[in-house]
Design a protein around this nucleic acid. Sequence first.
DNA 1: GAGAGTTCAGGTCAGTCTGACTCGAACTGC
DNA 2: GCAGTTCGAGTCAGACTGACCTGAACTCTC
Lengths: 234, 234
Amino acid sequence: MPQPHDAQMRLAVSTVIFALRPDAAGRAVLWTPLVRRTREPQLGLWALPGGWLPVNEELEVAAARTLRATTGLAPKYLEQLYTFGEVDRSPDARVVSVVYWALVQSDEAARAVAGPNVRWVPADTLPGLAFDHNRIVEYALWRLRTKVEYTELAHSFLGETFTLAELREVYEAVLQRPLDPANFRRTMIASGRLRETGELLAGAAHRPPKLYRYDASVRTAGAREPFQSERPAS
Amino acid sequence: MPQPHDAQMRLAVSTVIFALRPDAAGRAVLWTPLVRRTREPQLGLWALPGGWLPVNEELEVAAARTLRATTGLAPKYLEQLYTFGEVDRSPDARVVSVVYWALVQSDEAARAVAGPNVRWVPADTLPGLAFDHNRIVEYALWRLRTKVEYTELAHSFLGETFTLAELREVYEAVLQRPLDPANFRRTMIASGRLRETGELLAGAAHRPPKLYRYDASVRTAGAREPFQSERPAS
DNA sequence: GAGAGTTCAGGTCAGTCTGACTCGAACTGC
DNA sequence: GCAGTTCGAGTCAGACTGACCTGAACTCTC
């Protein structure tokens, strides 16, 4: 029979945050911000942003708050990932962590706050993190990579308007493989979710591309997934 | 800044259990077992099986235990569904529930324990449940119905060996639409996951069908999903 | 200012996949 | 022995996808 838990059990909320940034070679890759632990256990190690869940705060709000505290930005996409609760995942008390994952816009991420206790690292080559956080980020990466193929969340990395080449770059960075530009255009247009703004992006040394805007109002064919939030309250 | 939670916050584990059973008309549909609440709040209402998380018990083990306590059976499939933590979902203290969903074998479910405080109901026509449990079951149903289309979890409803017609019945009951027998056979065989046992099922008033066995050892084309468990420890 | 170099936008084509359908095989019940 | 059923295997047309082609439209270089 279940027994009431005692004060040794604590509930935390953490968030895996993803943004696209250029790597050393200038190619866009996934980055994630980490915070340095300022207290025991695991003092000094890098960890996911997060904290204890306040009694009167919603889980998703707590996730958005820690995200803002770390990056100074509001997520364009925020969704619950998984709840990690292994008995031995923290050396001291039993800690159950409700983990969210978030996408933030690339150009805003470029001017994200940085400091001695906040550090952005490439999501695919993580250092050794505190607790089971390496495993958590790997799962979040897996979820992002599978979900980007059957949903329309890629635009969350971009601004209000974008070209098809920019959108394709997002897919290529997330999926880590090149996509045929012509076929990519065809499938994106066929999805019915893109609206032409009527404007072109001038300045490049080639034919100026059309600017598009994402249209979320189009009804999805299948049933819409519950419990996701687009542009949550900041 | 996050503040440490106090004793007003409690962590629970619940499970949505699905099994196939014939309805009044004899057609196989999804059923789920409920338990009657024996204490306040919501005393007397029907609710999901579950309980408080013991400090030294793993989340998944706690889910399997409550499942066994309710149905007397071991699940053939068990996976974390979502964590529900709205501040006002329980009238008294703040309760955060880590919810799992499980599939149990049809013929075993037929001899599941029943009593004044345990009741099986058709999953699509639920009575008014305690707390936010209606919403939770609906989400679990959505997850089952979408996931059965791109994974191989349907066989979890069946025994060791089964005919293609039996497997098709599972899909039809879950998806709530008829499937073409010939096309169903083609795609199932093409998946490479079915092994002929060499035996036939005799006795029916038609050509005897082959018996198949599910082969989990075949490598999946895409990356395998983490954090699912097939046949967890009972 | 003409040509080179680039990507953009739209198209073709072949192979794959999927839903609808057909037909003989193999059993039981009458 | 015939009717009725599902089983198992096959056909066919349309949809979809990856590979590829071509003219359009811009900037940069000479």
